[in-house]
Nucleic acid binder design. Structure first.
Lengths: 226, 226
DNA sequence: GCGCTATCCTGACGGCGTCAACATCGACGG
DNA sequence: CCGTCGATGTTGACGCCGTCAGGATAGCGC
């Protein structure tokens, strides 16, 4: 079984289990070809990015992985299982993206706070379909353990950031941390969601759209922090 | 053609076009039975609320409306057309809900501002599937005129509220109205989206969940305003 | 060497959206 | 008053989908 905590980007290179094997046109179908689960996840990632969640298809994933249409059932049960597994890795990757952005920021509370928001937005922009999947409640199995732990880890990261911001008396006057957390998450999540839905205010681009968005996030969270 | 600006809740009562007509068992199918378009929209509303967007089906809508599976095509083209029409009425209803909440609030800037947010949240809570549909970019036709005008009206309502809030020098220090609008919309939209996705922080209910959410919205927007 | 189980295939089923072909109704012009 | 014509419904078909049942294959412990 592949490592379920694998957070790396999907690899499209075939494992060495398929040598060219000369002009033999095709083997009479190989059962047990190694780690189909990983390859299915990789294929699903491509399908999701290409076709979106509306055009996502279990059979297409199987096709890309070179197996029959019923093969995924043995690893994921049904389509919900596959999407849930993808969502779990998505939360893990979101966590890593935010952590990387924080690590690259100057070691100062407000800057780290804004950097986290920038990381959130960057993940959403770079993986729009994956991001949308993670919050599409109806298509996920919320009893799945991997999903819960991955989502919780990302949430705890957020709580930690807010706590760090409030460690000194200056910022975020309201004493209720829950409200602070809710506000922080809602603001960045709302920004990301609206941008992805094409509803970002004033998108008619004079100038760079990306820069505008990043600047908005930066300004919003510096204001939120102070 | 029915009024495309109809914002009332769907009516389930049959139009008087079907008199009992004695014991005649059934007419050999009535073509032109009045306003199928309206009835299809009403049926679609029920299907959406019951099954969600994932379980939404054109054929089921046709079944509920008592017509054949291909009938909707004559009024909406394809499923995108129907969903787009529903999204348009959704934006109109959101606008009305917010307006009603503002009208019921004390005539003071901050209170009206918070009331609008409360209206936004109330609409999302009372029509979760409809609300989700309105922001599901991939299933809507964004060249549709009715959708554009309805969405723009709701957006202009938001812009007006922010402008009203900034009319006196006190609140929302940042001079950039665009940032204020973005922040306002993102915050309330993020709150609504996260609540609907079941990701609202600390949902484990000691006490009334609804009250907690409403109080959070209230507090968040009073803080945003001042 | 032998079954056991995980893995994978084939084939089938019902449901879906869409299209093409046909039926009917209402309206409008002769 | 009648004929035609477009708008509005119906029927049937197509291909695709997810899922399930049943059979094939391969590796592994005994």
């Amino acid at each position: 079984m592949p490592d379920p905590d694998d957070r790396s980007a999907p690899e499209t290179s075939a494992p060495p289990s398929e040598p060219p094997a000369g002009p033999k046109p095709r083997r009479p179908y190989h059962y047990h070809h190694g780690d189909l689960r990983t390859q299915l996840l990789a294929a699903a990632e491509v399908v999701l990015a290409e076709r979106g969640l509306e055009g996502f298809t279990l059979r297409e994933c199987a096709r890309r992985a070179g197996v029959s249409h019923a093969a995924p059932a043995h690893h994921f049960g049904d389509v919900t299982g596959l999407l849930t597994a993808m969502a779990a890795t998505g939360f893990a990757r979101l966590h890593d993206t935010i952590a990387a952005e924080i690590a690259a920021a100057p070691h100062e509370r407000t800057a780290r706070y804004a950097a986290a928001a920038k990381g959130y937005m960057r993940f959403a922009r770079d993986n729009p379909q994956h991001f949308a999947l993670m919050f599409r409640h109806a298509v996920l199995d919320h009893t799945d353990e991997a999903l819960c732990t991955a989502a919780s880890a990302a949430f705890e990261q957020l709580v930690g950031l807010v706590a760090e911001l409030r460690a000194t008396p200056a910022p975020l006057a309201h004493p209720d941390t829950r409200l602070d957390v809710a506000m922080t998450w809602a603001t960045i999540h709302g920004l990301a969601t609206l941008v992805l839905a094409g509803h970002f205010p004033f998108p008619s681009g004079q100038g760079d759209r990306e820069a505008t968005i990043t600047a908005t996030v930066e300004a919003a969270f510096r204001r939120l922090a102070g």
